[in-house]
């Protein structure tokens, strides 16, 4: 009896994973519906949806980068103080002292860019595949809101290193918001916690970036993905005109 077999025979293992490992369709089905996270999938999928050109996996790429962002973001929070000038110094600490710190920061940064980029492409793909049509109207709207959240997340994260790039990027950005009639000034005031980009703004952006927006994003992602399943799975190119209303 190998170690693996022994482990699989323990009652603890069996209390967690209830199916066998033999490659039978039954086990494979159980893998899907006994797992909270995989449960969003059906047990069987249409083979053509697996084709690369069906979706270009753009939603998957966006989700993957989101997962990376959450993981690296949580790790980065361990070394980050949202205060001036410590925030900037923490970037240097990540670079010079913390093991793998610079790698995690790079990964977080590039994932954020990828997420914005792939989310945008995902939206275009869905549009050109006419996948926004009923019954997916609502999911399209959720997607648009997600894109907006993605932009906001990326933007709020932009300030956190407190370097020249961050400071002036955010200054320019919030000044654009100021142009809105009536509410613009107020929006900027509330966003920055003052009239200038200062320590208050850093703290607000930090809370938005690490708590408010991610929670909203993850909730909406759940809705989005759940609705994909509920609305009949991923929709590829509209080759099947029977489905047009």
């Amino acid at each position: 009896m190998t170690v693996g077999e022994w482990v699989r025979n323990t009652s603890v293992y069996r209390s967690v994973i209830r199916h066998g490992i033999a490659p039978t369709n039954r086990n494979r089905s159980l893998i899907i519906f006994e797992n909270l996270f995989l449960h969003v999938h059906p047990v069987k999928v249409r083979e053509k949806t697996l084709r690369f050109t069906h979706t270009f996996w753009l939603g998957g790429i966006t989700l993957a980068s989101t997962i990376i962002l959450v993981a690296t973001g949580i790790l980065l929070m361990f070394y980050y103080h949202p205060s001036v000038p410590q925030a900037y110094r923490d970037m240097k600490e990540l670079q010079y002292v913390v093991d793998n710190g610079v790698f995690l920061r790079n990964l977080h940064r590039w994932s954020a860019h990828l997420m914005v980029f792939s989310a945008f492409l995902h939206m275009l793909r869905v549009f050109y595949h006419r996948a926004y049509r009923p019954p997916r109207q609502f999911n399209w709207v959720v997607g648009v809101v997600l894109l907006l959240l993605t932009l906001l997340l990326s933007y709020t994260g932009y300030l956190l290193p407190w370097d020249q790039l961050a400071f002036w990027g955010v200054s320019v950005g919030t000044n654009m918001a100021k142009q809105a009639p009536l509410v613009g000034e107020r929006v900027r005031f509330f966003l920055l916690g003052g009239n200038i980009v200062s320590e208050n703004a850093l703290l607000r952006f930090y809370v938005l970036h690490c708590v408010v927006l991610p929670v909203a994003l993850l909730l909406l992602i759940s809705v989005h993905i759940w609705r994909v399943r509920k609305d009949g799975g991923v929709q590829g190119p509209p080759d099947d005109e029977r489905r047009s209303l």
Binding site: R89, K92, E93, Q95, Y96, V97
Partner: peptide
């Protein structure tokens, strides 16, 4: 020089 740095160039 940059006191925080731990590599020569920086």
């Amino acid at each position: 020089g940059e006191g925080l740095a731990t590599d020569e160039e920086d």
